[in-house]
Design a protein around this nucleic acid. Structure first.
Length: 570
RNA sequence: GGGCCUGUAGCUCAAUUGGUUAGAGCAGAGCGCUCAUAACGCUUUGGUUGGGGGUUCGAGUCCCUCCGGGCCUACCA
């Protein structure tokens, strides 16, 4: 039994996430959390909404709402969708929580005391019409290089040249279109990451077991050009965590807030306090997960994220933690994912292209999505969602291989023996062979789950389901029943136990179907640490019910309808 | 421009890190079964591992080069 802290990259607040976002962090994190719990480990699984920054302010303005109200509403929406996908967070917090305000300000204060904060005055573009400073990419204009008229202030999408906003010809606000722009001086705090470069580099070098995707991105940032750069950690915005030095005001920084990427990772910690506060527990309850001086020494901390998040989790956040000089827990393993594309292109919010979390649940229950997404997780490279693939995978793996197994066993039993585990007969060589095969496969499945090799685990799980069908074909209780009913009873009894076994080990992938299987078997099921014993768990005479079909088939018509519906508007 | 990842059967992916004849699932073909959601099982056809060159007793794996796909490049998050 170990203690495992799991965090998923926190989704940004400004809208409903698509399936690519889901499979890149929250879903595999949930898979791992459920598995670890099932194996008896103590797990704290945290996620939250990432609420600060320019896009949140703009989305709120577009919705005609105060930003706090907008975020609160969107938190409810995202929480509902998390529940809908059965994401088993112990706490789904908010980066705007009072806990995060206090902790973020605390970290800033500690970093300042450590001499790791520097004030810099810089020049930024201010839009009088919008009444705000504009981030580079919120400024549009004509590219001086290629003449493209919708180049952004950070880079021209057309010729890919990197730009400075002041390079643009006829610059305008991407928000309002206003050309009433001026360059103003503004003062910001910088985290002196350069002075932590050696420590960070050594730390990353020690992580030989991390995915290449994770370490190569980190090394790139550490070593590229002049090496790791200092990072601005404040912004001129209204919505955010006010800049304070601990609990004290920060002279000269009035009216400014911390940069969203400074406070968002700190929410991983603050979320733990949100969790314990909500349960009415003392700080010791969350500190034992996060403070190595207060019990977190033996915690294994695993983070899940898409590859775009890697620099912040391998460098910025560790810099914050290390720089604080306090004994906070550093991440032990980072599992990062590539992107999921949609049918030949990218998911696109603006074009309504692809399937978003709310739409997915309108179309089919969570388990269908969980299974497809996890069994096709973009681990080694970007992967692609197509409806043909989704249909084939759901119909074959879920409906035919697993669902139909449950159906044929329970219905056969009901027709020949009634709705109770048949009595009589005994397990024999075929059952022993199946148990041996299951033990081998289960061990492999567990290895993959522990290594967080998601696709391999899914492949192994499917192979375990197939064993049930192979066994039935071989044992043929429908034929044996005619000459040796007692032997047929033993075969069916074994098969019913297989259903319970499958429920237990499949639950991390498809929790609802697993629950339905267990309910039908009238049983609870822990992890089958002893396969032999697990297949004798349902005793003779134990009542069960024949469940509704666990999974329905996706028809060609539905597939075509959905493909058209989600193809996008442009 | 620079860096990183990637290219294996019609499709989605493996291949114990250089080791025998490159394997699975889906799709296709044949056979079997009839309990089951027209489901299941068995057998089987598919490969010049993107092209070319090199190192090695031996290369999908290492090196060079060319071609294709993707990502990142620090003020979106």
């Amino acid at each position: 039994m170990a203690r495992i802290l799991i965090t998923s990259a926190i989704p940004y607040i400004n809208g409903i996430k698509h399936l690519g976002n889901l499979v890149g962090s929250q879903l595999p994190a949930d898979l791992y959390a459920r598995y670890c719990r099932a194996r008896g480990h103590e797990v704290l699984f945290l996620c939250a909404t990432d609420e600060h920054g320019t896009p949140a302010e703009l989305a709120a303005a577009k919705a005609g709402k105060p930003v706090a109200e907008y975020c609160a509403e969107m938190w409810e929406v995202q929480k509902g969708l998390s529940d809908g996908f059965r994401l088993s967070f112990d706490k789904f917090g908010r980066s705007s929580s009072p806990q995060n305000h206090a902790l973020t300000q605390h970290f800033a204060g500690r970093l300042a005391e450590a001499g790791l904060i520097e004030e810099r005055t810089e020049r930024q573009v201010y839009s009088n019409a919008d009444g705000r400073f504009l981030p580079d990419r919120y400024i549009e204009g004509t590219c001086p290089n290629c003449g493209y008229e919708r180049a952004r202030g950070d880079q021209c999408e057309n010729c890919t040249k990197q730009l400075d906003p002041t390079d643009l010809i006829e610059p305008r606000s991407a928000i309002s279109g206003s050309t009433d722009l001026e360059v103003r001086e503004t003062k910001h705090l910088y985290l002196k990451q350069r002075s932590l470069r050696g420590e960070l580099s050594a730390w990353i070098d020690g992580k030989a077991d991390w995915p290449v995707l994770t370490t190569s991105i980190a090394r790139k940032w550490l070593n590229d050009g002049d090496g790791l750069q200092d990072r601005g950690i404040t912004r001129d915005l209204d919505w955010g965590i006010p800049v304070r030095k601990g609990t004290e005001p920060w002279p000269g920084m009035e009216g400014k807030v911390f940069y969203v990427w400074f406070d968002a990772p700190i929410e991983y910690i603050a979320c733990a306090k949100e969790w314990s506060d909500a349960n009415g527990e003392p700080d010791a309850a969350w500190e034992r997960w996060w403070r190595t001086d207060k019990g977190a020494d033996d915690v294994r901390y695993v983070q899940f994220m898409g590859k775009d998040n890697v620099p912040f989790h391998t460098l910025s956040f560790p810099a914050t933690i290390i720089g604080s000089g306090e004994p906070w827990k550093l991440v032990d393993y980072i599992k990062s994912f590539n992107y999921l594309n949609y049918d030949g292109g990218q998911f696109s919010t603006s074009q309504g292209r692809g399937v978003f979390m709310d739409q997915a649940l309108e179309v089919l229950p969570a388990d269908y999505w969980r299974w497809w997404l996890l069994s096709h997780a973009p681990e080694s490279s970007d992967s692609e969602f197509t409806w043909e693939n989704f249909q084939a995978s759901a119909n074959k793996d879920l409906a035919d291989v697993l669902g139909n197994f449950v159906s044929r066993v329970t219905k056969f039993c009901r027709s020949k023996f009634g709705e109770a585990v048949p009595e009589g007969g005994a397990y024999d060589a075929p059952e022993a062979a199946v148990i041996a095969a299951l033990e081998e496969r289960l061990e492999s499945y567990q290895r993959h789950m522990e290594a967080i090799e998601v696709r391999k685990a899914a492949t192994e799980l499917r192979a375990i389901w197939v064993i049930g069908n192979e066994y039935l074909q071989e044992a043929a209780p429908w034929a044996v029943f005619k000459t040796d009913p007692a032997r047929a009873a033993a075969i069916v009894r074994f098969s019913l136990n297989l259903i319970r076994f499958y429920a237990a080990i499949s639950a991390p992938f498809i929790p609802d179907a697993a629950a339905a299987m267990l309910e039908a078997m009238g049983s609870e099921a822990g992890w089958p640490e002893d396969v032999n014993a697990a297949l004798e768990a349902l005793p003779e005479g134990h009542g069960f019910t024949v469940p509704e079909n666990l999974f329905r088939k996706i028809s060609d018509e539905e597939r075509a309808d959905w493909a058209a519906r989600f193809a996008g508007t442009r």
